[in-house]
Design a binder for these strands. Structure first.
Lengths: 203, 203
DNA sequence: TCCTTTTTTGAGTGATCATTCAATTAAAAC
DNA sequence: GTTTTAATTGAATGATCACTCAAAAAAGGA
């Protein structure tokens, strides 16, 4: 039997998420990766194929965790709209944690960073965001059926609005602003959504 | 008297805005710049000092134009809130123009791209965004005095909410979605703001 | 202990990065 | 036409980029 790999692959991808999330794709060099993952070029390329390959795995892990945390919030709340509210509130808390690699979303950072030439990455990011939209839309269909939404409110459009709120919250949070201001912003976004819900406002 | 410069400096910065807006700072090389501005390294460095120097001038031009278009919308509208609404509407139209270098905002792209090491750029971008927030806050103070806002609505917080809406609108628009969907999103954001205005909704 | 098999290492690859500068070009003054 | 002065050119710089690969190391089976 041969030599067995000494490093933990999952841990490596974990570290890659932190690194890419903090620095973005383009500003992360293989030197950075070698250091953060404590791996040498040969091992890195044998394991992940390329910088791109590692990034895709990191983005997948990050994306699946974001999706999971949204799913949890929606499941654990009495109504869909309270689920969305508590997700936004929790998000404000999480991204302002001092050890968070960045406040902005890695997927959105990549969406804004990627050029037309990087067609594969562009497609991957769009796919991830479409999945979130779809999940939100499905939940909001349910909300509509359960009478949480005002008449005329379109679940699909509302899903995109909520996604834009998330993007806006986290992008604005990337500015030099305090945790309290980020929390206030999340509250105001929750209030803003009440324009589409049946009174009384769902908190 | 010596030889006179043959290139148009303003036109050069103009082209730089388009280029940086489309590609972002990091993904734009001096080769790209030489081609887009039709200038050779020597002229570029004699004129702008560095890639960073050119980018700062481009960002300044871009930022001042964004600020101007917001100012215009607020001035030309009967109320502050209708001004904000029409700004968002116009924005949706402008960014979905086929020849727009990108739908996302260059300032936000830079905010999400820049690392902690690039302290100067980070500060510049934060300054720009603070100026927009301040201008919005001032306008919303006026709106509050004129009775456009609901009781308890904080102009400063509302300014950050509106800025987050703009960021969200333009970032989501960067996804593979249609012009109609971007326009719908802008309308829904306008509706969402009605949670903070006195009825009837300001369109 | 030695053999087999796989992983790990790290120096080295060519390409591209932002930047420099000596040589060349050209416009105005005389 | 000559001189003066600044703008333009483009080859060259060293650094860094993602990536490769031959050699060394190590773990299990015999």
């Amino acid at each position: 039997m041969p030599r067995v790999a000494k490093f933990d692959r999952d841990k490596a991808v974990e570290n890659a998420v932190r690194l890419f999330w903090e620095r973005g794709y383009g500003n992360t060099s293989m030197k950075h990766i070698e250091q953060a993952l404590d791996m040498r070029p040969g091992s890195l390329y044998a394991t992940f194929g390329s910088k791109d390959g590692l990034f895709r795995e990191a983005l997948d892990l990050y994306g699946s965790r974001m999706a999971q945390s949204l799913r949890r919030a929606l499941e654990q709340s009495p109504t869909i709209m309270t689920g969305i509210s508590s997700y936004l509130r929790n998000l404000a808390g999480e991204i302002t944690t001092p050890d968070s690699p960045a406040r902005a979303c890695l997927v959105v950072k990549t969406l804004l960073e990627v050029t037309a030439e990087q067609e594969d990455l562009r497609a991957l990011v769009n796919q991830r965001l479409q999945m979130v939209e779809d999940h939100l839309a499905q939940a909001l269909e349910t909300a509509s059926r359960q009478g949480e939404l005002r008449q005329g409110a379109d679940p699909r459009r509302l899903a995109r609005l909520v996604q834009a709120q998330m993007m806006g919250l986290r992008s604005l949070a990337q500015r030099d602003i305090s945790e309290a201001e980020v929390r206030d912003l999340a509250e105001d976004m929750i209030s803003a959504l009440s324009a589409f819900t049946v009174p009384p406002v769902a908190h």
